[in-house]
Design a binder for these strands. Structure first.
Ligand SMILES: [Mn+2]
Ligand SMILES: [Mn+2]
Length: 304
DNA sequence: GGCCGGC
DNA sequence: GCCGGCCAACGCTTT
DNA sequence: AAAGCG
Protein backbone atom coordinates (compact mmCIF):
# COMPACT_ATOMS: atom_id res chain seq x y z
CA UNK A 1 0.00 0.00 0.00
CA UNK A 2 1.75 3.10 -1.22
CA UNK A 3 0.48 6.42 0.04
CA UNK A 4 -1.54 8.22 -2.60
CA UNK A 5 0.65 10.23 -4.91
CA UNK A 6 0.95 13.79 -3.75
CA UNK A 7 0.35 16.37 -6.44
CA UNK A 8 3.04 18.99 -7.03
CA UNK A 9 2.25 22.58 -6.19
CA UNK A 10 3.01 25.28 -8.75
CA UNK A 11 4.02 28.77 -7.71
CA UNK A 12 4.48 31.65 -10.08
CA UNK A 13 7.35 33.75 -8.75
CA UNK A 14 7.98 36.86 -10.82
CA UNK A 15 7.00 34.87 -13.88
CA UNK A 16 9.18 31.90 -12.96
CA UNK A 17 7.16 28.70 -12.80
CA UNK A 18 8.32 26.91 -9.64
CA UNK A 19 7.29 23.29 -9.27
CA UNK A 20 7.18 22.02 -5.70
CA UNK A 21 7.19 18.25 -5.41
CA UNK A 22 6.06 16.56 -2.18
CA UNK A 23 4.86 19.84 -0.64
CA UNK A 24 3.48 18.10 2.45
CA UNK A 25 6.59 16.10 3.22
CA UNK A 26 7.41 16.75 6.86
CA UNK A 27 10.92 18.16 7.06
CA UNK A 28 10.49 18.56 10.85
CA UNK A 29 8.27 15.57 11.71
CA UNK A 30 7.98 16.26 15.47
CA UNK A 31 7.07 19.86 14.82
CA UNK A 32 4.81 19.05 11.89
CA UNK A 33 6.64 21.49 9.66
CA UNK A 34 6.41 20.65 5.96
CA UNK A 35 8.49 21.47 2.94
CA UNK A 36 5.71 23.83 1.85
CA UNK A 37 5.86 25.60 5.23
CA UNK A 38 9.60 26.10 4.74
CA UNK A 39 9.01 27.53 1.27
CA UNK A 40 6.30 29.79 2.66
CA UNK A 41 8.72 31.09 5.29
CA UNK A 42 11.39 31.94 2.74
CA UNK A 43 8.81 33.51 0.43
CA UNK A 44 7.59 35.78 3.22
CA UNK A 45 11.12 36.65 4.27
CA UNK A 46 12.68 37.05 0.82
CA UNK A 47 12.48 40.82 0.67
CA UNK A 48 14.17 41.12 4.06
CA UNK A 49 16.75 38.42 3.46
CA UNK A 50 17.90 39.06 -0.11
CA UNK A 51 19.86 42.27 0.55
CA UNK A 52 22.26 40.27 2.75
CA UNK A 53 22.85 37.80 -0.09
CA UNK A 54 23.69 40.42 -2.70
CA UNK A 55 26.96 39.51 -4.44
CA UNK A 56 27.83 37.24 -1.53
CA UNK A 57 28.71 33.64 -2.31
CA UNK A 58 26.58 31.17 -0.44
CA UNK A 59 27.19 27.63 0.72
CA UNK A 60 24.02 25.57 0.74
CA UNK A 61 23.12 22.88 3.23
CA UNK A 62 20.56 20.45 1.86
CA UNK A 63 18.30 18.05 3.74
CA UNK A 64 16.13 16.61 0.95
CA UNK A 65 14.61 13.96 3.25
CA UNK A 66 14.12 16.21 6.27
CA UNK A 67 16.29 17.18 9.21
CA UNK A 68 16.83 13.65 10.55
CA UNK A 69 18.16 12.17 7.31
CA UNK A 70 21.36 12.55 5.36
CA UNK A 71 22.45 16.02 4.37
CA UNK A 72 25.11 17.54 2.19
CA UNK A 73 26.75 20.88 1.52
CA UNK A 74 27.05 22.37 -1.89
CA UNK A 75 29.00 25.39 -3.03
CA UNK A 76 29.82 24.59 -6.64
CA UNK A 77 27.19 25.24 -9.26
CA UNK A 78 28.37 24.28 -12.71
CA UNK A 79 26.36 26.65 -14.83
CA UNK A 80 24.90 24.25 -17.34
CA UNK A 81 21.34 23.60 -16.28
CA UNK A 82 18.87 26.42 -16.75
CA UNK A 83 18.78 27.71 -13.23
CA UNK A 84 17.39 30.95 -11.84
CA UNK A 85 20.56 31.74 -9.93
CA UNK A 86 23.77 33.46 -10.90
CA UNK A 87 27.27 32.15 -10.36
CA UNK A 88 30.74 33.63 -10.10
CA UNK A 89 34.09 31.98 -10.80
CA UNK A 90 36.35 31.29 -7.84
CA UNK A 91 39.88 29.90 -7.82
CA UNK A 92 40.21 27.61 -4.83
CA UNK A 93 43.07 28.25 -2.42
CA UNK A 94 44.52 24.76 -1.96
CA UNK A 95 43.12 23.02 -5.00
CA UNK A 96 44.13 23.79 -8.53
CA UNK A 97 40.52 24.17 -9.49
CA UNK A 98 38.13 26.91 -10.49
CA UNK A 99 34.56 26.47 -9.33
CA UNK A 100 31.38 28.47 -9.76
CA UNK A 101 29.89 29.87 -6.60
CA UNK A 102 26.17 30.56 -6.41
CA UNK A 103 24.85 34.09 -5.89
CA UNK A 104 21.22 34.44 -4.89
CA UNK A 105 19.75 37.69 -6.14
CA UNK A 106 16.09 36.87 -6.65
CA UNK A 107 13.13 35.38 -4.85
CA UNK A 108 12.74 32.71 -7.52
CA UNK A 109 16.40 31.76 -7.15
CA UNK A 110 16.02 31.45 -3.39
CA UNK A 111 12.83 29.41 -3.57
CA UNK A 112 14.14 27.22 -6.36
CA UNK A 113 17.00 26.13 -4.10
CA UNK A 114 14.61 25.48 -1.21
CA UNK A 115 12.40 23.42 -3.52
CA UNK A 116 15.42 21.20 -4.17
CA UNK A 117 15.91 20.46 -0.48
CA UNK A 118 18.08 23.33 0.77
CA UNK A 119 17.21 24.35 4.33
CA UNK A 120 20.24 26.34 5.50
CA UNK A 121 22.07 29.18 3.76
CA UNK A 122 25.61 30.04 4.87
CA UNK A 123 27.23 33.21 3.58
CA UNK A 124 30.83 34.08 2.86
CA UNK A 125 32.11 37.19 4.60
CA UNK A 126 33.62 38.65 1.44
CA UNK A 127 31.70 39.67 -1.65
CA UNK A 128 32.27 38.79 -5.27
CA UNK A 129 34.64 39.29 -6.87
CA UNK A 130 37.10 40.56 -4.29
CA UNK A 131 37.17 37.37 -2.25
CA UNK A 132 40.30 38.41 -0.33
CA UNK A 133 38.81 41.33 1.57
CA UNK A 134 35.88 40.61 3.89
CA UNK A 135 33.32 43.31 4.65
CA UNK A 136 32.36 41.71 7.95
CA UNK A 137 34.46 40.87 10.99
CA UNK A 138 32.64 38.02 12.67
CA UNK A 139 32.87 37.14 16.35
CA UNK A 140 31.61 33.57 16.42
CA UNK A 141 30.78 32.88 20.06
CA UNK A 142 30.63 29.15 20.71
CA UNK A 143 29.78 27.18 23.84
CA UNK A 144 29.84 23.52 24.82
CA UNK A 145 26.78 21.45 25.57
CA UNK A 146 26.70 22.08 29.31
CA UNK A 147 27.23 25.82 29.23
CA UNK A 148 24.07 27.86 29.85
CA UNK A 149 22.93 30.12 27.01
CA UNK A 150 22.92 33.19 29.24
CA UNK A 151 26.69 32.85 29.56
CA UNK A 152 27.15 33.41 25.84
CA UNK A 153 24.90 36.45 26.18
CA UNK A 154 27.20 37.76 28.93
CA UNK A 155 30.21 37.24 26.67
CA UNK A 156 28.43 39.10 23.88
CA UNK A 157 27.82 42.03 26.20
CA UNK A 158 31.40 42.35 27.38
CA UNK A 159 32.54 42.15 23.75
CA UNK A 160 30.16 44.93 22.81
CA UNK A 161 31.28 47.07 25.74
CA UNK A 162 34.94 46.58 24.95
CA UNK A 163 34.49 47.50 21.30
CA UNK A 164 32.16 50.37 22.08
CA UNK A 165 35.01 52.09 23.92
CA UNK A 166 36.86 52.05 20.63
CA UNK A 167 33.91 53.54 18.83
CA UNK A 168 32.98 50.31 17.10
CA UNK A 169 29.35 49.30 16.66
CA UNK A 170 28.49 45.61 16.91
CA UNK A 171 25.38 43.81 15.66
CA UNK A 172 24.20 40.64 17.45
CA UNK A 173 22.15 37.74 16.17
CA UNK A 174 21.29 34.27 17.31
CA UNK A 175 22.86 31.48 15.30
CA UNK A 176 19.80 29.28 15.67
CA UNK A 177 22.07 26.84 17.47
CA UNK A 178 23.64 27.33 20.87
CA UNK A 179 25.89 30.29 20.17
CA UNK A 180 25.75 33.94 19.18
CA UNK A 181 27.18 35.81 16.20
CA UNK A 182 28.49 39.35 16.52
CA UNK A 183 28.99 41.20 13.24
CA UNK A 184 31.22 44.22 12.78
CA UNK A 185 30.67 45.54 9.25
CA UNK A 186 33.95 46.88 7.87
CA UNK A 187 35.29 48.53 4.78
CA UNK A 188 36.62 45.77 2.52
CA UNK A 189 40.19 47.00 2.73
CA UNK A 190 41.71 44.42 5.11
CA UNK A 191 42.76 40.93 4.16
CA UNK A 192 41.39 37.93 6.01
CA UNK A 193 44.46 37.43 8.13
CA UNK A 194 44.32 41.01 9.37
CA UNK A 195 40.67 40.68 10.31
CA UNK A 196 41.20 37.26 11.86
CA UNK A 197 44.12 38.48 13.97
CA UNK A 198 42.14 41.50 15.08
CA UNK A 199 39.24 39.34 16.23
CA UNK A 200 41.71 37.03 17.95
CA UNK A 201 43.41 39.91 19.74
CA UNK A 202 40.10 41.31 20.96
CA UNK A 203 39.23 37.82 22.18
CA UNK A 204 42.61 37.61 23.88
CA UNK A 205 42.04 40.90 25.69
CA UNK A 206 38.63 39.78 26.82
CA UNK A 207 39.99 36.46 28.07
CA UNK A 208 42.45 38.41 30.22
CA UNK A 209 39.70 40.67 31.52
CA UNK A 210 37.18 37.85 32.04
CA UNK A 211 39.17 34.62 32.38
CA UNK A 212 36.20 32.66 33.73
CA UNK A 213 33.98 33.76 30.88
CA UNK A 214 35.93 33.99 27.61
CA UNK A 215 38.65 32.07 25.80
CA UNK A 216 40.01 32.04 22.27
CA UNK A 217 41.13 28.41 22.51
CA UNK A 218 39.01 25.60 21.20
CA UNK A 219 37.49 23.92 24.23
CA UNK A 220 38.71 20.38 23.69
CA UNK A 221 40.93 20.33 26.77
CA UNK A 222 39.52 18.38 29.67
CA UNK A 223 40.74 20.66 32.42
CA UNK A 224 40.57 24.41 32.13
CA UNK A 225 38.08 26.01 29.84
CA UNK A 226 35.19 23.69 30.68
CA UNK A 227 32.38 26.20 30.61
CA UNK A 228 33.89 29.18 28.91
CA UNK A 229 32.70 30.91 25.79
CA UNK A 230 35.05 30.43 22.85
CA UNK A 231 35.53 33.34 20.49
CA UNK A 232 36.14 31.35 17.32
CA UNK A 233 38.15 33.84 15.32
CA UNK A 234 39.00 31.21 12.65
CA UNK A 235 35.64 31.88 11.07
CA UNK A 236 37.26 34.92 9.44
CA UNK A 237 38.99 33.03 6.64
CA UNK A 238 38.54 32.87 2.90
CA UNK A 239 36.00 30.32 1.77
CA UNK A 240 34.60 29.90 5.28
CA UNK A 241 30.97 30.68 5.79
CA UNK A 242 28.54 31.59 8.54
CA UNK A 243 24.83 30.98 8.96
CA UNK A 244 23.10 33.82 7.13
CA UNK A 245 20.82 36.24 8.91
CA UNK A 246 17.28 34.84 8.71
CA UNK A 247 18.35 31.39 7.60
CA UNK A 248 16.34 28.54 9.06
CA UNK A 249 18.42 25.89 10.86
CA UNK A 250 17.81 22.18 10.48
CA UNK A 251 17.27 21.66 14.21
CA UNK A 252 14.21 20.84 16.26
CA UNK A 253 11.66 23.68 16.30
CA UNK A 254 13.12 25.19 13.12
CA UNK A 255 15.07 28.00 14.79
CA UNK A 256 16.10 31.00 12.71
CA UNK A 257 19.35 32.97 12.94
CA UNK A 258 17.74 36.13 14.25
CA UNK A 259 19.13 39.65 14.63
CA UNK A 260 18.55 40.99 18.15
CA UNK A 261 18.16 44.27 19.98
CA UNK A 262 21.00 44.76 22.42
CA UNK A 263 18.40 45.23 25.15
CA UNK A 264 17.22 41.70 24.42
CA UNK A 265 20.75 40.41 24.93
CA UNK A 266 20.92 42.38 28.20
CA UNK A 267 17.58 41.13 29.46
CA UNK A 268 18.13 37.50 28.43
CA UNK A 269 15.49 35.00 29.46
CA UNK A 270 15.00 33.50 26.01
CA UNK A 271 16.12 30.42 24.16
CA UNK A 272 17.48 30.36 20.60
CA UNK A 273 14.46 28.30 19.55
CA UNK A 274 12.16 31.12 20.67
CA UNK A 275 12.97 32.71 17.30
CA UNK A 276 11.82 30.31 14.63
CA UNK A 277 10.19 29.67 11.28
CA UNK A 278 6.72 30.10 12.72
CA UNK A 279 7.14 33.46 14.43
CA UNK A 280 9.87 35.32 12.54
CA UNK A 281 7.61 37.02 9.98
CA UNK A 282 5.54 38.52 12.80
CA UNK A 283 8.68 39.59 14.65
CA UNK A 284 10.02 41.36 11.56
CA UNK A 285 6.70 43.09 11.01
CA UNK A 286 6.82 44.36 14.58
CA UNK A 287 10.52 45.06 15.19
CA UNK A 288 11.78 45.64 11.68
CA UNK A 289 15.05 44.34 10.27
CA UNK A 290 17.57 44.76 13.06
CA UNK A 291 20.54 43.92 10.86
CA UNK A 292 20.13 46.77 8.40
CA UNK A 293 23.08 48.56 9.94
CA UNK A 294 25.43 45.83 8.77
CA UNK A 295 24.67 46.85 5.19
CA UNK A 296 25.50 50.50 5.69
CA UNK A 297 27.79 51.14 8.59
CA UNK A 298 31.12 49.96 7.19
CA UNK A 299 33.73 50.72 9.83
CA UNK A 300 37.49 50.76 10.06
CA UNK A 301 39.54 48.65 12.42
CA UNK A 302 41.26 50.60 15.21
CA UNK A 303 44.84 51.56 14.40
CA UNK A 304 46.65 50.49 17.62
C1' DG B 1 16.95 16.10 -4.97
C1' DG B 2 19.24 15.41 -9.08
C1' DC B 3 23.35 14.53 -12.01
C1' DC B 4 26.64 11.41 -13.77
C1' DG B 5 29.23 7.33 -14.85
C1' DG B 6 29.42 2.35 -14.94
C1' DC B 7 27.19 -1.70 -15.79
C1' DG C 1 17.21 1.32 -17.42
C1' DC C 2 19.09 1.07 -12.83
C1' DC C 3 22.22 1.79 -9.08
C1' DG C 4 25.59 4.06 -6.30
C1' DG C 5 28.51 7.94 -5.53
C1' DC C 6 28.55 12.70 -5.17
C1' DC C 7 27.26 17.05 -3.62
C1' DA C 8 32.83 21.79 1.30
C1' DA C 9 37.21 22.96 2.43
C1' DC C 10 40.60 26.99 5.28
C1' DG C 11 43.76 27.39 8.64
C1' DC C 12 44.91 25.53 12.96
C1' DT C 13 45.68 21.98 16.23
C1' DT C 14 46.53 17.37 17.52
C1' DT C 15 48.50 12.83 16.88
C1' DA D 1 52.91 13.57 7.39
C1' DA D 2 48.31 12.86 8.20
C1' DA D 3 44.02 13.39 10.60
C1' DG D 4 40.66 16.13 13.08
C1' DC D 5 37.97 20.17 13.81
C1' DG D 6 34.58 24.10 13.47
MN1 LIG E 1 29.31 29.24 16.10
MN1 LIG F 1 32.70 28.06 15.38
Amino acid sequence: MKPPKENPVLWNINGYQLQINHPNKLYWPEDKISKLALLTYYKEMAATLLPYFKNRPVTLHYFPRGIHNFSFYRRNFDQKTNSPIQTVDYQEVSQDKTIQLPLIHTEEGLLWLVSKGCIEFHLWSAKAIDFLHPDMAIFDLDIGNNTPFNKVLKAALVTRDYLKKQGIVVYPKTTGGTGIHLYVPIKPIYDFKTVRMWVKSVGGRLSKMYPELVTTEKSGRKTHQGNRVTIDYSQNSIGRNTAAPYTVRAYRLAPVSTPLHWYEVEKGGFKPTDFNLKNLPARIAKEGDLFEGTLKNQQQLPVE
